[in-house]
Write a protein that binds this DNA or RNA. Structure first.
Length: 254
DNA sequence: ATGGTTGTACGACAA
């Protein structure tokens, strides 16, 4: 089964891109972040007509997550225990025997901000949740926009970014704690090269210059990681007209 | 590379 993650930065703007991408790249599940739609505006019909089930948790203007899947999602959960349930950043469901946990981790803004402290609290809550969830669901995938570049090779200019949000040591420690659960960083397992990014700023021609970061991840429990047969970043949609600033990351499991 | 853009929504904020 192919499992993918894509921060679409407004599903309203990106619906045609998503449908076009699904047509050329069919998946078992794609996890979406930043849908920026209330649930009454979610394009469930268009996605059902494309042959997918959907579950979603949205709000006005900000955040919003969804799972788009070939098989019906079961045991859907739309709140991460221990954090503000009003910010729609979390949705989990069981699809085809795999527990899929879709996260839009808070960006954190700057390392001296309240939002940064909230990000670290959010990551603590995620770690606790995943530890419990893995005990119940040996086949577990946690994926989404983590807003963390795990290592310097995941950053185009590590010196310029040193200590900043997305790369700061406490954030990277939180990410390593997720890996210590243990979970496998699927892309890193397959591709140890640096300079492979999933996000590029809209400004300054960043995509053209490959000034980006790898901040979108798929983490797999050991049992699920044993089935991993491939993982790649699909850069194509980032070059399409009116793109998201993120591009899809796709893992393949036997 | 600390915003040169984009999205939401119509000014300002988030990313």
């Amino acid at each position: 089964m192919r499992i993918a993650t894509w921060n679409v930065n407004s599903l309203n703007v990106r619906l045609e891109a998503l449908l076009g991408w699904l047509e050329r790249s069919p998946v078992g599940v794609v996890a979406l972040q930043e849908t920026k739609l209330t649930d009454d505006k979610f394009p469930a019909l268009a996605l059902r007509q494309a042959g997918y089930h959907v579950c979603y948790a949205g709000q006005k203007t900000y955040n919003g997550v969804a799972l788009v899947s070939r098989e019906e999602p079961r045991e859907v959960l739309t709140a991460l225990p221990g954090v503000d349930p009003e910010a729609k950043r979390f949705i989990a469901a069981t699809v085809g025997g795999v527990r899929v946990v879709n996260v839009y981790v808070p960006n954190g803004q700057t390392v001296d901000s309240d939002k940064y402290r909230e990000k670290l609290v959010w990551l603590d809550a995620l770690e606790s949740f995943l530890r419990q969830e893995m005990a119940r669901h040996p086949r577990l995938v946690a994926l989404g926009d983590f807003n963390i570049a795990p290592e310097d090779r995941d950053v185009h200019d590590p010196a310029a970014w040193a200590g900043s949000v997305l790369v700061s040591p406490p954030e990277r420690e939180a990410f390593r704690r997720l890996l210590a659960l243990p979970m496998v960083d699927c892309f890193r397992q397959v591709d140890g090269e640096g300079g492979r990014f999933s996000w590029w700023d809209y400004r300054a021609g960043s995509f053209r210059r490959n000034w980006g970061m790898r901040i979108d991840h798929l983490l797999a429990s050991p049992e699920q990681a044993a089935r991993l047969t491939g993982c790649h970043i699909d850069r194509a949609p980032r070059a399409w007209e009116r793109p998201s600033d993120h591009t899809p990351v796709v893992a393949e499991f036997a």
